[in-house]
């Protein structure tokens, strides 16, 4: 249990230092500009205290629980003869984590709203989850082979920067935001620790070069996924526009016909 106490002391200090600027800024703004009513002010202060306690406990659990075990699992898998097993395991974990990520659910809802329900929440969720799972699996592959991150990020972002001119600007904004939504607390802590652990266990692998970069891949894939959905949606929009135009032409024709009939009757 001593490990908990030791970490706790470190964390309380660290989190206090990192939350302090926010508290100070808020207090300054409160007195010179915001001037929120006292009740609301107290609720916010209480919220900040709660955030502090929550953050300390959360990071304590992550550090002592998840990160340690993540590194150990990584080490165990990395030293196996068949360490390619990391690839399917990465895929599975990526899938699980994304489906569970609250940010991704919010994003899915947003896209559904923007496309008026044409792209449903479920489709986005599965699309993203499989995308992220592939990203994690690819990162494992990259780590095992020691391939530079360049060969993944450069073509990836080139494609993204080209695709974005073919969708509605709204989709571009959502797409780039989604990269941030997908990289939740579990990917950035547990999965990263697992990769650092296995990279350290694999001979000739440098964690800084090979293990890091996984989050970068996970952040890139959703941008691509959402843009692809945007292209699909644009086609649908064009189709609807064409149908409407046809309907209008047909109507005009009918009106025209009706007019000519009435003309001939008049005569």
């Amino acid at each position: 249990m001593t490990i908990f106490v030791d970490e706790l002391i470190v964390l309380v200090k660290e989190i206090f230092i990192s939350l302090l600027p926010l508290l100070i800024i808020f207090l300054i703004f409160q007195f010179i500009r915001l001037k929120l009513p006292k009740e609301q002010f107290l609720v916010i202060i209480r919220g900040i205290v709660l955030t502090f306690v929550g953050l300390v406990l959360f990071l304590l659990g992550i550090k002592v629980g998840f990160i340690r075990v993540g590194e150990l699992i990584g080490q165990t898998l990395g030293t196996l003869d068949h360490n390619w097993i990391l690839i399917p395991i990465g895929f599975l974990l990526g899938l699980l984590v994304t489906l569970a990520e609250p940010g991704v659910r919010i994003l899915a809802l947003e896209v559904e709203k923007v496309t008026g329900g044409y792209i449903s929440r479920k489709i986005i969720l599965y699309f993203l989850a499989i995308g992220v799972a592939l990203a994690v699996a690819l990162s494992m592959f990259r780590m095992l082979k020691g391939i530079s991150l360049w060969y993944f990020l450069l073509p990836g972002y080139c494609t993204i920067l080209t695709l974005m001119w073919f969708v509605k600007p709204m989709f571009v904004a959502i797409a780039f935001d989604s990269g941030g939504f997908a990289t939740g607390p579990m990917i950035t802590t547990f999965m990263l620790a697992l990769m650092v652990g296995s990279s350290a266990a694999i001979k000739g692998s440098n964690p800084l070069l090979d293990a890091f970069g996984m989050v970068a891949m996970v952040a890139m894939v959703p941008i691509f996924s959402v843009l692809v959905l945007g292209v699909l949606y644009k086609r649908e929009e064009l189709r609807i526009a064409r149908l409407e135009k046809q309907d209008r032409l047909k109507e005009e024709k009918e009106i025209g016909n009706a007019n000519s009939i009435s003309h001939s009757l008049d005569r």
Partner: peptide, 29 residues
């Protein structure tokens, strides 16, 4: 070590709940 992990999961769980409730009440407004 495994027990430490389980305790860690518990802390992470409680901490995350408190954190999100705190963010909702402070940072969002």
């Amino acid at each position: 070590d495994f027990l430490n992990f389980l305790v860690g999961v518990f802390f992470a769980f409680v901490g995350f709940v408190l954190f999100l409730v705190g963010v909702n009440a402070s940072l969002l407004p």
